[in-house]
């Protein structure tokens, strides 16, 4: 059950491997990555800010609800903050369960809820140098 809101790059392989257990028959992982276009704006990178204490609490509440609802075995959820370059991961949600269906459902449930509840904000840093909060 790992949750982190961090500046450091996400170690994807370690995050996923930490969920490997004899009880799990499925590990589903979602990676959110920084893409070139934010609507019409071409960006060079994104800047993320968090209300870290509340963000960790929020992600834990969401993940625990997913555990209860879908009966998953374990999860590892990491959200980055600070400057994140194109193609890098901004967020990873990895979930293990006995069978694939619960893991798929829980993974989607968690990332969908993080996007609407967890106090994290992003700013587009355009190729023009202009910075715009996305809220």
């Amino acid at each position: 059950m790992k949750i982190s809101v961090q500046k450091e790059k996400i170690e994807v392989a370690d995050t996923i491997e930490s969920l490997r257990t004899p009880e799990a028959g499925a590990i589903v992982t979602f990676q959110g990555t920084v893409r070139r276009f934010s609507g019409d704006i071409e960006v060079t990178r994104l800047y993320y800010e968090a209300y870290r204490e509340m963000a960790v609490k929020s992600i834990k509440q969401i993940a625990d609800e997913a555990k209860e609802r879908f009966g998953i075995i374990d999860y590892s959820i990491i959200h980055r903050i600070g400057n994140i370059d194109l193609t890098e991961d901004s967020v990873i949600v990895s979930v293990s369960s006995e069978h694939r269906e619960e893991a798929f459902s829980a993974c989607k449930f968690i990332i969908d809820r993080i996007k609407i509840e967890t106090p994290i904000w992003k700013k587009d840093i355009a190729v023009t140098g202009e910075a715009t909060w996305r809220d």
Binding site: V91, K115, I116, I120, W133, D135
Partner: peptide, 29 residues
């Protein structure tokens, strides 16, 4: 938010409470 939870009604405040003010969230990807 009050003490890291979204405000729930007109709650009474207490000494050293922490209130956060922020726009709509936009985390994730």
């Amino acid at each position: 938010a009050l003490n890291q939870n979204y405000i729930n009604g007109d709650q009474e405040l207490r000494e050293n409470d922490e209130v956060a003010v922020f726009p709509m969230v936009s985390g994730g990807c």
